[in-house]
Design a protein around this nucleic acid. Structure first.
Lengths: 203, 203
DNA sequence: CTATTTTTGTACCGAACGGTAAGTTATTTT
DNA sequence: AAAATAACTTACCGTTCGGTACAAAAATAG
């Protein structure tokens, strides 16, 4: 009558790896968006049947949200590492060039699933759309905080509005996602990044 | 036996205005995207039945493409008028500030339907996605030509790469569509526009 | 071994999808 | 008035949608 079962290894073992399956689901959502992805698309890509999907991940909406979590926790993610750079300019630089590389990487769909996963969407997708908006705003908030720190460190002029600077950077990054989705190359986005940095205030 | 019927006013007259109905369809596609919009959404908003829709507009895909045509031909469109401004800087300025105003106008859905109408989408939407990509590239091409003209007129330095400048502007405009779609205000986008202009080369 | 637990494949659910056949209604032409 | 034309309403088409009931299968626990 032990109250808490430890790792629960009783019963038939799962025949697929949840993380691998989630990776596959992410790729489909990334390429087709939430509304454009059907359960058949998902089960085919994940190599499992619908009951297995529902038992392991809940439903389509929860699967999407878990896929987004995976997306943001990936080692190849460029956002959080860029925030750690020593100067505000370097933060922006690494973020823009990181985006240019990552969003055009052909080992996965082009662009950014947080931007293009549920932009204009049905009412059924309203929850996931809100979740993506929140994540985008959180990213911008992190940028703003980083730039406010830079102002305190006299790394950015006091006259700079950290919020506007963060929103400008977020806007360019999101625009780059559209460009990548439309077929822009790494080099083309690097040129955009270089030009976008011209607007960045120097200390 | 006159071969060509003129205005074809024989038969029962159409009970709805095609242009008004197309406006309604555009608004639904704008808000929900191609995949997220159902025929029921459309017929309800347009105030007609499905057979009327099919008789007047072909099918869902053709209706979408006609709605996009309407969108781009609207009087409130800011893109083409901005191209006519006397200097390259003013072109960019009017385009960015025009976008800030237009994309946050609450008399219609926020953002830009050419950007968000079919970004990530199902295979059924592949044609309309391609059409939207083409329209975005055409817009950027028009910007590039305008900036090349500016170089010839010594309105822009010869060192400027018109294509990169056009792509930068396109990127910021597309990013502003995402921002507007996420709830950004006119004022916030105007601040972004002001900052984005800092990267623009002065003559 | 048997009992229990969990996953598996199959087969199915009602609802909604995009699209259409068919007959009625309103208008012009003769 | 009668014929011709085109849009109208209704009711339906086959398919796919997201989601699930159920029993066989595979593991552990006793």
């Amino acid at each position: 009558m032990s109250a808490v079962s430890c790792t629960q290894n009783v019963g038939r073992p799962r025949a697929f790896d949840m993380n691998t399956a989630l990776e596959k689901a992410l790729e489909v959502f990334w390429r087709k968006g939430y509304d454009g992805t059907s359960l058949s698309d998902l089960t085919e890509a994940m190599g499992i049947n619908k009951p297995s999907l529902y038992a392991a991940f809940g439903n389509k909406e929860q699967l999407f949200l878990k896929a987004i979590e995976l997306y943001e926790s990936r080692p190849c993610a460029f956002f959080l590492p860029a925030l750690e750079k020593p100067t505000a300019y370097q933060v922006a630089e690494h973020m823009l060039y990181g985006a240019a590389t990552n969003m055009t990487d052909h080992s996965h769909p082009q662009g950014c699933v947080v931007v293009q996963g549920a932009l204009s969407c049905s009412e059924a997708a309203a929850t996931v759309k809100e979740a993506l908006i929140r994540r985008r705003l959180e990213g911008q908030q992190k940028l703003r905080q980083r730039f406010e720190r830079a102002k305190q460190e006299h790394d950015l002029p006091a006259s700079v509005d950290a919020e506007t600077l963060a929103r400008y950077l977020g806007t360019v990054l999101q625009g780059m996602a559209i460009q990548a989705n439309s077929g822009a190359t790494t080099e083309q986005l690097q040129q955009v990044a270089q030009l976008a940095l011209q607007a960045f205030p120097r200390p």
